[in-house]
C-alpha cells in the first residue's frame, strides 16, 4: 500500500538563516497513528505546517495520497484536517457557526446531521449556541478539533493536542483519536510526553534540530525508553573501574566519585542486586544510591550525540 503521506528531502530555512527542517524523509502509513516526538523548537510544528500549507518549504516535496501539496493543494488540503497547538478562535462566533464555517471553507456542502454528531462526540452540543469567548480553554480546544473534523478529513494533524489540557480532556482526546482511527482516518500527533506516544501511537518518530533522527515501531522505542540509570555515590573516589565489575559496563563520573549503571527495568534480571553484592565483596564502600528513569531528553541526547558519548566513555 502506498504511504498516505510521503515527505521527501523536506527542508525549511527561514530568512533569519535558521534551519527548521533539514532534509526530512518520512512515510506515513494509511490508517496509522503516528507520534512525532521532540523537544521544543525541534521542528515538529514546522513539519506539520509545511504539509498543511501554512509554511512554504525551501526544498524537497510532500505528497498526500499521491498528490503534490504545492501543485495539487486543493486535493491535498481537502484531505487534511489540522488542529494547531495554539487556541486560535473567532471569539465572537458561536460554536456551531464556526464549525459550519470551517466545513464551507473546505468546500463541503452543509451537513447539519454530521455537524451535530461531531459536536455531540466532543461534548459540545449543549454549548453549540455559546460564543467561543465564553468557553474554557479545554472547551475551546474541543471546538478547534470539531472545526478540523468538520470537512471529514482523511488525515488529521494534532499539534500538541494535550499540552496544558486537564486529565479528563486528555482521556477524551485519546478516546476520540482511537474512534477516528476505527473509521480509517490517519492521525499524526506531535507531543513531548512519552506517555502520550506510549498510549496512542503505532509508530514514533523522533525529531531534533530539524532532523528526523529515528522512526520506529512504538514497541521497539519503548524498550529503549524502559531503561534506568543507577548512580552509586562512592565513599572513596576511584581512578579506574575494578576488573571485577567489567560485566556491568559501568561508567565513572565526577572525578571518580560516582559509578553509573544503565539497566533495563523490563529485563528478568536487572543486575542491580548482583552489582551491589559484588561491590560489598570487593570492599568498595558507597554513601548513597539513586536511580532515575531515562527520560525522553536522555534518549534525544543519546541519539543526537552518539559519537561523542562513545568518546567520553572511552
Amino acid at each position: 500500500m502506498p504511504p498516505v503521506i510521503r515527505v521527501e528531502a523536506l527542508t525549511k530555512a527561514y530568512a533569519s538563516g535558521h534551519v527548521a527542517l533539514d532534509a526530512v524523509d518520512l512515510d506515513i502509513r494509511e490508517g496509522e497513528i503516528f507520534a512525532l516526538l521532540g523537544p521544543n523548537g525541534a521542528g515538529k510544528t514546522t513539519l506539520i505546517s509545511v504539509i498543511c500549507g501554512i509554511v512554504t518549504p525551501s526544498g524537497g516535496r510532500v505528497l498526500v495520497r499521491g498528490h503534490d501539496i504545492v501543485r495539487n493543494y486543493r486535493q491535498t488540503r481537502t484531505d487534511i484536517g489540522l488542529v494547531p497547538q495554539e487556541l486560535h478562535t473567532d471569539m465572537f462566533e458561536t460554536v456551531i457557526n464556526t464549525v459550519r464555517f470551517s466545513r464551507g471553507l473546505f468546500g463541503k456542502a452543509r451537513n447539519d446531521a454530521l455537524i451535530e454528531r461531531i459536536l455531540r462526540d466532543l461534548s459540545l452540543w449543549d454549548k453549540r449556541k455559546a460564543k467561543i469567548m465564553e468557553l474554557s480553554g479545554g472547551m475551546k480546544r474541543r471546538v478547534m478539533i470539531a472545526k478540523a473534523l468538520s470537512h471529514e478529513p482523511r488525515v488529521l494533524f494534532l499539534d500538541e493536542p494535550t499540552a496544558g489540557v486537564d486529565v479528563e480532556l486528555r482521556r477524551d482526546m485519546w478516546e476520540l483519536v482511537r474512534q477516528l482511527r476505527e473509521t480509517g482516518v490517519t492521525i499524526i500527533l506531535t507531543t513531548h510526553y512519552i506517555e502520550e506516544a506510549e498510549e496512542m501511537a503505532d509508530r514514533v518518530g523522533v525529531i531534533d534540530k530539524g532532523r528526523l533522527i529515528l522512526v520506529e515501531e512504538k514497541a521497539t522505542l519503548m524498550q529503549k525508553l524502559g531503561k534506568k540509570t543507577l548512580t552509586i555515590h562512592l565513599a572513596q573516589p576511584l581512578d579506574a573501574i575494578p576488573r571485577e565489575l567489567d560485566d556491568w559496563e559501568l561508567s565513572l563520573h565526577h572525578d571518580g566519585h560516582e559509578l553509573e549503571y544503565l539497566f533495563d527495568t523490563r529485563a528478568e534480571r536487572t543486575g542491580v542486586s548482583a552489582l551491589l553484592r559484588t561491590l560489598g565483596d570487593i570492599g568498595l564502600g558507597y554513601k548513597d544510591l539513586n536511580t532515575r528513569e531515562s527520560s525522553l531528553e536522555d534518549i534525544f541526547v543519546k541519539l543526537v550525540h552518539t559519537p561523542q558519548s562513545d568518546e567520553v566513555a572511552a
Binding site: 498543511c52 500549507g53 501554512i54 486560535h88 471553507l105
Partner: peptide, 12 residues
C-alpha cells in the same frame, strides 16, 4: 487572532 491558520490550510 491567529485564525489565519485555517484560511492558509484550506483549499482556497
Amino acid at each position: 487572532n491567529g485564525t489565519i491558520y485555517e484560511l492558509l490550510s484550506a483549499p482556497m
